[in-house]
Amino acid sequence: MLKIENLQVKLEDEDKQILKGLDLEVEAGKVHAIMGPNGSGKSTLSYVLSGKGGYEVTGGSATLDGEDLLELEAEERAAAGLFLAFQYPVEIPGVGNMTFLRTALNAQRKARGEEEMSATDFLKFVREKAKALQIDAEMLKRPVNVGFSGGEKKRNEILQMAVLQPRMCILDETDSGLDVDAMKLVSDGVNALRDAGRGFLVITHYQRLLDHIKPDVVHIMADGRIVKTGGPELALEVETNGYADILAEAK
């Protein structure tokens, strides 16, 4: 589904290479996890895949079901089914959360040649999804992420994912800042979306999230590359021993 080959990325206005030949493939129906030390390039990978500016791809490719992602505008990637739950969700003063969700959903539907959802249907649909994540009506009315606590912002990311129902979901440290109960809510939200047609790439530093969202494959990323790939046991190894051994072995 998501196929990344030898991806090389540098900063646009700095001579700094961040991704240095990254290979990764996420199959439909699977959950892949990426772990790796701070600064190894995990967020950069997620931004480059979703179309953020400021980066220059100097080599390699990234495709979603065969379609060249790197050629598409950010909004086209979203309409093609790619979704990124941000490590740091952005606050948008003056834009209501509900308006934001509806504009996004209808824009994607329009781009795919589907009917827009009516205001009443949409309201019902969102309320149901929000309830599962314990996001109340008040939070839906407020401006996007403004004044939300760290955990509320993360839950709001998952709400967007639940509403937009993307095929390929990238979660960048969605667990950071979540209390134990919120971690459970968020994981339930993710698990509810797991199905044969959907792929997940879960970036995390902690095993705990992976107790709830059981990964099929775990990758270790360091210095802009995937240096080791294994099963769920790899995450446990990192949890107990840290990265030192793995990185030494990779060299």
């Binding site: 941000f86 606050e91 824009a107």
Partner: peptide
């Protein structure tokens, strides 16, 4: 904010308008 909106599928023009109204 513009990128956040676009990453959710909102085209650049619409996103700019939304932010302008905001």
């Amino acid at each position: 904010a513009l990128f956040y909106l676009r990453s959710r599928g909102v085209p650049e023009g619409t996103a700019t308008d939304l932010l302008t109204l905001a």
